[in-house]
């Protein structure tokens, strides 16, 4: 309903107006967009304004916007490059750090091993020295024991002869010849 009445209103006045216009003023009141009276003016002013706008766009706006966009692209690309470079640096630093850590660990291990070996060697050495000195002392003691034993054994004969002489003196009331006693002791000891 609205649509039909709208059509009625749009077409009716303009149609009658146009007809009247054609009749009365020789085309002055035609439907304005189709009125050729203003065509030259419209075209002229469109040409003037549009060409001016075109020249402005080409000479001023395009370089301005274009350079801004180009600059932005460069900045972004540069920043990305910088970021990539920094990342590489960081990666290199991490790699170097890890390498150093590994080196340090290896070094520490080496030092520990060396220290352990040295300690072990020293302990072994000490032990050997102590053992050697102990053995020397042992040998010494044994020698002394042997010499003491030998001297003791050497005295045994004379002590036994003396003791035997004393016992014989008590028992017999007089001294016995030494040679006899010695022979007797010798016989007894053997």
């Amino acid at each position: 309903m609205f649509v039909t009445s709208a059509y009625a209103q749009t077409t009716a006045p303009s149609a009658t107006e146009a007809h009247e216009g054609v009749a009365a003023h020789g085309g002055n009141e035609a439907f304005p967009p189709f009125d050729p009276q203003f065509f030259p003016s419209q075209i002229l002013w469109l040409a003037i304004t549009f060409i001016a706008f075109y020249v402005f766009v080409k000479r001023v706006l395009m370089p301005q916007i274009g350079s801004t966009l180009e600059h932005r692209r460069h900045t972004i690309a540069g920043n990305l490059e910088e970021a990539a470079r920094m990342k590489e640096e960081a990666d290199a630093a991490i790699a170097a750090y890890e390498q150093e850590l590994a080196d340090a660990r290896a070094h520490a291990h080496e030092i520990a091993t060396k220290a352990r070996d040295e300690a072990r060697a020293k302990a072994e050495d000490d032990r050997r020295k102590v053992e050697a000195s102990l053995e020397a002392k042992l040998a010494d003691s044994e020698k002394r024991i042997a010499s003491v034993k030998a001297s003791a054994m050497k005295d045994v004969g004379s002590i036994a002869e003396e003791t035997a002489a004393h016992i014989v003196e008590r028992l017999l009331g007089g001294p016995a010849p030494k040679s006899d006693i010695a022979a007797a002791v010798k016989a007894a000891r053997e």
Binding site: P40, S41, Q42, T49, A52
Partner: peptide, 16 residues
């Protein structure tokens, strides 16, 4: 030719 500066010409200038 009628090359008058019209209201449309004015708005062409304004648009530009």
């Amino acid at each position: 030719y009628d090359l008058s500066f019209t209201n449309y010409a004015l708005f062409m200038v304004i648009v530009v």
